[in-house]
Design a protein around this nucleic acid. Structure first.
Lengths: 193, 193, 193, 193
DNA sequence: TATGAATGAGTGTTCATTCAT
DNA sequence: TATGAATGAACACTCATTCAT
C-alpha cells in the first residue's frame, strides 16, 4: 500500500529543501559554475539521480533558491503593504535588512555573486528586476514626503548605497561596523534636513 | 638576420596584450568560467598552444589582466602621491573615476564579477586588498580634515557608495544618471557642512 | 467482499493491455530506445512501479507486444488452416493485409523498426522466424500449383515484395497508391500466365 | 615549427575516416542508440575528446556516414548522367547494386535500420528523399519507353521490390539467392513484354 | 615562435530498475 | 495492488592542458 499523497508531499518538500540548502551553501562558498551536481548530491546525502527528481536542471535549482531568498527581503519591506513607508517601517527595514543578511548571509553572498556573472545574470535578471523596482518606487515616495530636493536620485543613491553596503558587508563580515552603519543610515535618511 | 632582443621583447609584449585584450572582453561579456581557452585563442587569432607560451595557465592570464586594470585607477587617485587629498584632487578623482569606468568599462565589469565569485576571489583578493587599503586611509584623512564627526565610518561609507555606484553603473549603463551622480558626490563630500 | 479470482484475472488483463497499448504507441512513434518507462507509465496513467508488476522488464513488454501483433496476421492467412491457399483466400489475404496494416498501422510501424535494429532484432528474431516460415511454404505451394517455373524463388520474391510494400506504405501512408497496388498484386499473382 | 596545413589536412582526413569506419561498424552491428561514443572511440583507438574534434555530435557523425554511403549508390545509377537509363545501364545497376550491398553491407544494414527508427529517420529523411526521388523518376521513364501500361506504378513497385530485396538480403545474407534474383530482375524488367 | 591534434578527467543529465510503504 | 522516492551506472559532451612537429 502506497503512502498517502500527504506523506509524499512532505517527503518531497523536505528533500527539496535539503537539496536547496546544500546547493545554496556550495554555490555561495565555491561558486555556481565550480559547484558540480555531484558535490551537491554528496552534501545532501543522496544520489545525483534523485536530485533530478526534484529539479529539472542545475539552472532551475538556482532559480528556486533565488526566488525563495528574495521573498524574505520583500516581506520585510513596507510591512503593511500600503506602498507608503513610515519612519517606523524604515527603521524596521534597516534593522531587519542586516538581520536578513546576517541570518541568510550565505544567500546574499550568492546573490551578489550571481548578479555579476553575465552567464548567470541573464537567468535571474528578469526575476530580480521585477522585485527590485517596487522598492525603489516606495523609497522615492518616502524621500519626496521628506521634501528632498531630488527624490528619484536620492532613492537611486540609497539603493546604490545599500548595494555597496551589502557587498562590503558580505565580503568583509568580520571588519564591517554593522551597528555604526545602521545608526548612520537611520540618522541620515530618517531625520528631516 | 636575427631580430635584436629588443625586437623580440616588443613582439612578445604585443602578443601578450593581444591575448589579454581578447581574454578581458570574453571574461567580461561571457564570464570567466564560461570562457574557454579555445575561444580566447580564436579571438586573439592564434593557436591554443601559443597562448600557453605566454601564460602558464588560465588563472595567470586572469591575474595579469586584473593587475594591469587596477594600476590605472591607482594612478588617478592622490595624483601627487603625498597621501593627502586636496579638494581639486577629489574633484579630479570623481570625474576620472567615471571616465575610467567609461573607457575601461569591460575591465570593471569583469572586476566586479570576479570579486563575488568565491572560486576566483581567492586568487585576486590579496592583490586587490593591498591596493584598496591606502585609498581608504587617504579618504579618512580627507574627511578628518573636513571635521566630519566620524571620519573612518565616513570613509568606509564613501567606499561602499563608490562600490555601489560602480556596481549599478556597470549593470545599467544606459539608465544611470552619471552627471547627476557626479555633482551629487562632489557637492555632498567636498563642501564642508 | 473479496473479488473472485476471475475478476482479478480480468483486471490484470485489462491493466496489462492498457500498458501494452501505451507502450506500442510510444515505441512506434518515438522509437524503442527513446521511449522511457516513465513515459509509458504516464501514458498508461499508472506508476512506474506498477508497470513492473505486470512486466519483468522493458524487453519483456516489447516481446508481448510483438507476439500479440503477429497473431492477427497469421490468423488472416490460410484461413481454414489446411496449408493450401485457394485463390479466394489469396484475394482475401491481399485485402486483409492492407486492412491489418491500416487498423494496426502503429504495430507494423513498430515491427519494421524493430526488425532492423540489431540490438532488438536478436530478441524478436526467433519468434518472428517461426511465424514467417510457414507462410513462405504455403506461398511456394500456391505458386507451384499455378505452374510457376521456380515457385520457391517466386515465393521469396513475393515475400520480399510484401516487405517492400509494407515498408513503403508505412513510411509514406498518404502518398502510397494502396488500391492500385492491391489490383496489381492480385492480377499479377492470381491469374495463371 | 608546426606541420604544414597540407599535413594537418591529411591527418584530419585519415582520422575522420578512422572514426567513421569504427562508428559505421558499431552502428550497424549494435544499433545507433546502443552504440556509445566511448565504444566508438575505443574501436577507433582514440580518446572520446578527440572524436569531438572531428564531429560536432553523434548525430553529425551519423549524417556524414549516411552521406558518404549514399554517394556510391548514386554514382552507379544512370552512369552517364543523361537521366535516361539504357538496358545496359539497367543491367549494370542491378549487378553493381548487389556488389555495393556486398562490399558496403555494413552501411546498408545501418541504412535500413535508421530508416525505420522514428527518432533517427527525422534526421536523415530529407537527405535521403532528395537522393531517392531522381532514381524513381528515371525508372518511370525507363518503363514508359518500354511501353508498360502504368510506368509510375511500375517504378514504385520496382522501388518497393528493391527495398524488400535489400531488406531481406541484409537480414538473411547466407540464405538469400542473390544470383537467381539478379536474373529474375533483369529478365523480368529488361525484356519487353 | 607556432600549430592544432590529442588527452583524460570532468560535466550535467537520463533512465531501467528496486524498494519501503 | 499500487505508489513514487531512490539508486547507480551509463550517457553525450567539454575543456584546460600537453606535446610532437
Amino acid at each position: 500500500m502506497p503512502r498517502t499523497s500527504e506523506q509524499y508531499k512532505e517527503i518531497r518538500s523536505e528533500k527539496k529543501h535539503k537539496i536547496m540548502d546544500a546547493a545554496l551553501e556550495l554555490f555561495a562558498s565555491e561558486g555556481y559554475h565550480v559547484t558540480s551536481i555531484s558535490k551537491i548530491a554528496d552534501k545532501a546525502h543522496m544520489s545525483k539521480g534523485l536530485l533530478y527528481n526534484y529539479f529539472q536542471s542545475k539552472e532551475e535549482l538556482l532559480l528556486e533558491i533565488v526566488d525563495e531568498g528574495f521573498r524574505e527581503l520583500i516581506n520585510n519591506f513596507d510591512l503593511n503593504n500600503d506602498n507608503i513607508l513610515t519612519d517606523d517601517e524604515f527603521d524596521y527595514f534597516i534593522n531587519s535588512m542586516f538581520e536578513i543578511i546576517d541570518t541568510k548571509r550565505t544567500f546574499w553572498k550568492l546573490y551578489f555573486s550571481l548578479l555579476l556573472q553575465p552567464s548567470i545574470a541573464k537567468i535571474i535578471e528578469s526575476k530580480v528586476m521585477t522585485l527590485y523596482q517596487p522598492m525603489i518606487d516606495i523609497m522615492e515616495k518616502y524621500f519626496a514626503k521628506k521634501k528632498y530636493k531630488n527624490p528619484r536620485i536620492e532613492a537611486l543613491m540609497f539603493g546604490s548605497m545599500l548595494d555597496g553596503i551589502g557587498l562590503n558587508y558580505i565580503m568583509n563580515p568580520t571588519l564591517y561596523p554593522v551597528e555604526e552603519v545602521k545608526s548612520y543610515l537611520i540618522e541620515k535618511y530618517k531625520t528631516i534636513k
